[in-house]
């Protein structure tokens, strides 16, 4: 701050607090709804302060699910976790390897491969859903973890990021390693991976959220309830709410759907911000 003007500083705080309230309001209301019972959630006006049914609702949602046909949310959380981890770890692994090849090796068609990967930037899943669905169906991957994650795993963004990071690694480290007798894979494991580990962790945070929040794709390829992810289940709950509005349970599920990524973002804020600004710039 350049000069000391208490009035301006006060204004700044006021605006920020207002902003925080707007940002937090939907989340707060959801939390509150998840702590009341069914009856209270049908009375107008809805409560703005938490009630005492949090654990009861949590228990019901986790192990029994919402409504008579609903499956337990606990299982969906597990599916979401597996999918998010597969996507994040998968993307990072294949991108690390391909970026390593492109930056550290001279080989035929190197630039061709690079452009092939680059093109995937231009093909978000939303614009190629039908034919991708057909491919996954032909491969018999519907209703499987592989089907959930594989089509989302190729990522130009991650490859570009690692390419950028690798290009920033001093050449002398490779030379020193070669004089020390390390071959390509040994250099990759012993030197390159350890010194880029914060970049990897930062990207992992972003990709975990990306994977967890996938919606359209799981919606299309899972028909078996045991493969549902929690994010896609929200939609079905909202539809069910038209007939039997069990808002306390729906909102508890919603809370569970957003809790893990929020925890990751807030808990690993530094890595998250690093990952975000690095992948996009």
């Amino acid at each position: 701050m350049v000069e000391n003007r208490p009035y301006v500083t006060f204004m700044a705080h006021a605006v920020l607090i207002f902003g925080v309230i707007i940002v937090a309001l939907p989340i707060w209301v959801t939390f509150v709804a998840a702590t009341h019972d069914e009856l209270r959630m049908t009375q107008i006006p809805l409560p703005l302060l938490p009630g005492g049914h949090f654990f009861e609702n949590l228990n019901e949602v986790l192990f029994e699910g919402v409504g008579s046909r609903g499956s337990p949310v606990g299982m969906m959380l597990l599916n979401s976790l597996i999918m998010a981890l597969l996507i994040a770890v998968g993307k990072i692994s294949i991108s690390l390897l391909s970026a390593f090849a492109i930056v550290y090796f001279r080989f035929p068609f190197r630039m061709g491969f690079f452009w092939l990967i680059f093109i995937t930037l231009m093909l978000p899943v939303e614009v190629r859903i039908l034919p991708t669905f057909a491919v996954v169906a032909d491969l018999g991957l519907l209703d499987s973890y592989m089907g959930l994650s594989l089509p989302l795993i190729a990522s130009a963004t991650a490859t570009f990021l690692f390419r950028q990071v690798f290009l920033g690694v001093p050449d002398e480290l490779l030379e020193a390693a070669r004089i020390d007798g390390a071959g390509p894979m040994r250099f990759f494991w012993d030197i390159l991976l350890p010194i880029t580990r914060t970049n990897i962790a930062a990207l992992f945070v972003i990709l975990f959220i990306y994977g967890w929040n996938q919606y359209l794709w799981p919606l299309l390829i899972t028909t078996d309830q045991s493969m549902y992810t929690v994010v896609m289940a929200i939609k079905q709950l909202l539809e069910a709410a038209e007939e039997t509005p069990q808002w306390h349970l729906i909102m508890m599920t919603t809370l569970l759907a957003m809790a893990p990524p929020i925890a990751v973002v807030v808990g690993m804020q530094k890595l998250f911000v690093k990952g975000l600004t690095e992948t996009e710039k």
Binding site: E172, L173, E175, A176, I179, G181, D190, I195
Partner: peptide, 19 residues
């Protein structure tokens, strides 16, 4: 290969493995 030449090298920026 460099490793087979029975040499050792000291680099300008030292090239120490930072980790």
């Amino acid at each position: 290969e460099p490793a087979e030449r029975d040499i050792a090298m000291v680099f300008q920026n030292y090239a120490l493995y930072p980790h």
